[in-house]
Design a protein around this nucleic acid. Structure first.
Length: 826
RNA sequence: GCCGGGGUGGCGAAAUCGGUAGACGCAACGGACUUAAAAUCCGUCGGAGCUAGCCUCUGUGCGGGUUCAACUCCCGCCCCCGGCACCA
């Protein structure tokens, strides 16, 4: 046997064995307790990166650990295979996106297999294959029937580089989430998913169902994104006209302080309101200018507020006061009613606007500590206070006045309490080729006609020329676009746009439960056994995109009767980013680390161990240190432990009586059980694999420090080694499998039960007690574990080093912490 | 501005309930083996001090506090990372 772990030979051998024996296929036996372990599936770029290695190594330890714990584990993998890069490759190199993608999938599968992950490859899905996207279309149609899909003209975010629309979640700092190009705004007919119908439930479950298993950070991000505000919709009326001007406010307590109103420049009321106004043309032209102001900068809080009086007044329904109506850039049409009541004294935005246009400021909430004066006010007063200038409500605390005034408004029929969400409907149309075709047909006579189920899938043609010019490639394909109306049979045209790829990834976790089902997106019975996913693992960058969409889909699929689970992912682990030299890895920065190189140089187990040991999963991981050296060194240390004693180990039994061991043998025995206990707890609580691995290292250090003599010590030693190898199996499956087999152990190490710590062995019979004098450590005593407190005190006081510090003084008190310390206070 | 998470050696990080701060590893340094190197093994490794001891003092972003005892709890700050942000 070699003295070094021959990584490549051993790893390839076991990978072949696992593949041939389908070792990791989930069992169809639904009576067993299940565990569904899922990692976010990759985009098939063709090469895995360190982020993948981290994500999938974490998932693999969990899956293998749960398997050893007796669960029926489902651990699938697939490819999120639609999307821009394939199209770009087509444009740049003339290769068909389908071909390019399948090639990349093949290349990535080789790499994933080379890392030895325990995937059930029989269940692989790729979203770009018709047997998958067919069911995405099918779901679209069910959503459509439920009224959860609609088409409307809307201002949408347009990425000029990707030549497509983006959902709001996909815009980051005014740029495209994928390519960073500056977003433009366009008016387009667009398909939407009505995610807002589920806003309330999506929000509620952030508080009810998910907190036990999701990181608080992600829940907060989702809650902020949904952005629920409770308030009142109040009807203002245009002075002298029969026109209602409803506004939404969360601050009805300030309603007596309204001194003007503002409409969004997009407001459809503007036409009517300005009818007959002298400078109407100028106003409409100005509104037009505001509308075309760059939306990104318009939306920024630090943009200068600007607006214009539109020559009309509204009446405050509570005071009867006439107030001027403005249009301004800081009011957006998409939120609330697209109009606001402005209270400059108590809202900073309104304050800035009022100052600029010299609109009166009226204080209605007085600071109880420092009297406010409208003349000298330098910014809006937004804190708590007492109502003034507010008629019957004077003298009330403003927080309770919110309730009282809301009630008053409702009672008088002036408006009603409502709830507003920041969440908008999800725009899913993409003007791209490499995506799932939207299964809709446009007929001159019948209008919008859904493709009948029997005609699914709408196949994405794979023989198009992708040039990147002139709009959606599908629109240019006569063969694709021309069809007949399923209703009347007349010539009709297909929808030429495809779905956002986030649609494809919103339900893939369900497809894995029955990936080959040819009559349903997935089998309901299988889904009800396997779902929800017990552990989902992926990057935090999907906190409000993928994870929100998938939750939405899951709830709709439940309401369609396709599955029972309310939430798709019971537990979520968001791993930290992999960085290099303190910066995010990227090709443009040239600071990438290629996992392929590490595997080549050190092997898969070393790569896995390194990435798991470097930091706890949720933390950022810097790849720049030379930690891989350490992990291969450790693997070789374990290897040699067997290699150097192989014959003796094979000959040894594993039966021994702990209380008949020599002191060093007993130390090994205790260390093993300490390690079992520690590793188990580290995995169970928060997956702290780094400290679990450090426990392996400590155990190995212990094994190197002893020299077994007689038979029972060898038995103890062998048992310790086998336990170590067993516990390491989820982390280093190749090494463990090989050592298990070399030691001629029956069966496979990966099928062993997870070891159990013997509580007896965890109990120490000797303890080291710290002795402090005035809270400073002065000495340590090694005592028998069952020592009496009085005896311990006596020993401590009698100790020579202690006496140097007590100098004969009588202690004020002596604190004894059982099994830990004695503190003598003078 | 609001919300969330952080701040511990040269570095990555440990530290159940408030009870020995720095486990485990990386790097570095010294030594053994070797003709030499690699590999391996042994040792040192937060800072300061001299009397060189299993010593003393000091040390977990800063300033206070509670406590016999604080990385840990409380109050007030500073800094870093992530998210949201004219959302009425």
């Amino acid at each position: 046997m070699r003295e070094q772990y021959p990584a490549e030979i051993v790893e390839l051998k076991w990978q072949k064995y696992w593949e041939e024996n389908k070792t990791y296929a989930a069992s169809p036996d639904k009576t067993k307790p299940k565990f569904y372990c899922l990692e976010m599936f990759p985009y098939p770029s063709g090469k895995i990166h360190m982020g993948h290695v981290r994500n999938y190594s974490i998932g693999d330890v969990i899956a293998r650990y749960k398997r050893m714990r007796g669960f029926n584990v489902l651990h699938p993998i697939g490819f999120d295979a639609f999307g821009m890069p394939a199209e770009n490759a087509a444009i740049d190199h003339g290769i068909q996106p389908a071909e390019w993608t399948e090639k990349n999938i093949e290349a990535m599968k080789v790499q994933l297999k080379r890392l030895g992950y325990s995937y059930d490859w029989e269940r692989e899905v790729a979203t770009c294959r018709p047997d998958y996207y067919r069911w995405g279309q099918w779901l679209f149609l069910r959503f459509y029937e439920k009224g959860l899909v609609y088409r409307k003209k809307a201002t949408v975010n347009w990425c000029p580089a990707c030549a497509t629309v983006l959902a709001r979640e996909q815009v980051e700092d005014g740029g495209c989430w994928r390519c960073d190009s500056e977003i433009q705004l366009k008016e387009l007919e667009h398909w939407f998913f009505k995610i807002t119908d589920y806003a309330e439930e999506l929000l509620r479950d952030c508080e009810e169902k998910l907190p036990a298993g999701w990181p608080r950070k992600v829940l907060t991000m989702q809650k902020n994104w949904i952005g629920k505000s409770k308030g009142v919709e109040v009807n203002f009326r245009v002075s002298g006209e029969n026109i209602d001007l409803p506004i939404f406010t969360t601050r009805p307590d300030t309603i007596f302080g309204v001194t003007f109103m503002v409409l969004a420049p997009e407001s459809p009321l503007l036409e009517r309101l300005t009818a007959g106004v002298a400078n109407r043309e100028a106003i409409l032209a100005y509104a037009d200018k505001l509308r075309h102001q760059d939306k990104i900068s318009r939306a920024a809080a630090d943009t200068k507020k600007e607006g214009m009086f539109i020559g009309r007044y509204a009446v405050n329904p509570l005071t009867g006061e006439e107030i001027p109506i403005y249009i301004a850039n800081f009011v957006v049409m998409e939120y609330g009613t697209g109009a606001i009541m402005a209270v400059p004294a108590h809202d900073q935005r309104d304050f800035e606007f009022a100052e600029k246009y010299e609109i009166p400021i009226k204080i209605v909430i007085q600071n109880p500590e420092l009297k406010l004066n409208a003349e000298t006010l330098e910014s809006a007063y937004v804190a708590e206070g007492v109502l003034v200038n507010s008629g019957d409500f004077n003298g009330q605390n403003n927080l309770s006045a919110i309730e009282k005034i809301s009630e008053y408004i409702e009672n008088k029929g002036l408006g009603q309490r409502t709830v507003q969400y920041r969440l908008r409907d999800w725009g899913i149309s993409r003007q791209r080729y490499w995506g799932n075709p939207i299964p809709i047909i446009y007929c001159e006579k019948c209008g919008v006609v859904p493709v009948p189920d029997a005609d699914l899938p709408v196949i994405l043609p794979t023989n198009l020329k992708i040039t990147g010019k002139g709009g959606s490639p599908l629109a240019g394909s006569e063969e694709f676009i021309n069809t007949t109306c399923p209703k009347c049979g007349a010539p009709a045209k297909r929808e030429s746009e495809t779905m956002d790829t986030f649609v494809d990834s919103s339900w893939y976790f369900a497809r894995y439960v029955s990936p080959h089902d040819e009559s349903n997106p997935f089998n309901t019975e299988d889904a009800n056994y396997w779902l929800p996913v017990d552990q989902y693992i992926g990057g935090v960058e999907h906190a409000v995109m993928h994870l929100l969409y998938a939750r939405f889909f899951s709830k709709v699929m439940r309401d369609l009767g396709l599955l029972k689970a309310d939430e798709p992912f019971a537990n979520l682990l968001t791993q930290g980013m992999v960085i290099k030299d303190g910066a995010k890895m990227s090709k443009s920065k040239g600071n990438t680390v290629d996992p392929g190189r590490i595997i080549e140089d050190y092997g898969a187990d070393a790569a896995r161990l390194f990435i798991l040991f470097a930091a706890p999963p949720e933390k950022e991981l810097d790849c720049s240190d030379k930690g891989v050296e350490g992990s291969i060194r450790f693997i070789n240390r374990v290897w040699r432990l067997v290699a150097l004693n192989l014959e003796r180990l094979k000959a040894a039994s594993t039966d021994y009586e702990p209380n008949k061991l020599s002191p060093s043998g007993l130390r090994v025995h205790q260390k093993v059980h300490w390690a079992i206990d520690k590793v188990t707890r580290d995995i169970e609580n928060n997956f702290h694999f780094n400290t679990a691995i450090s426990a392996f290292m400590e155990l190995v250090n212990e094994l190197y420090s002893v020299d077994p003599g007689h038979e029972s010590e060898w038995a103890c030693y062998k048992n310790a080694l086998l336990t170590l190898i067993t516990m390491m199996a989820p982390f280093t499956p190749h090494l463990s499998s090989e050592l298990w087999s070399i030691m001629e152990q029956p069966g496979a190490v990966l099928e062993q039960d997870w070891p159990q710590a013997d509580q007896q062995a965890l109990v120490k019979n000797e303890l080291t007690i710290v002795v402090q004098v005035n809270s400073k450590v002065r000495t340590k005593l090694v005592v028998s574990a069952d020592i009496e407190q009085g005896e311990l005190k006596r020993l401590a006081l009698a100790n020579e080093r202690v006496r140097i510090y007590t100098k004969g003084e009588e202690p004020v008190k002596i604190i004894v912490v059982p099994n830990k310390l004695v503190n003598i206070v003078l």
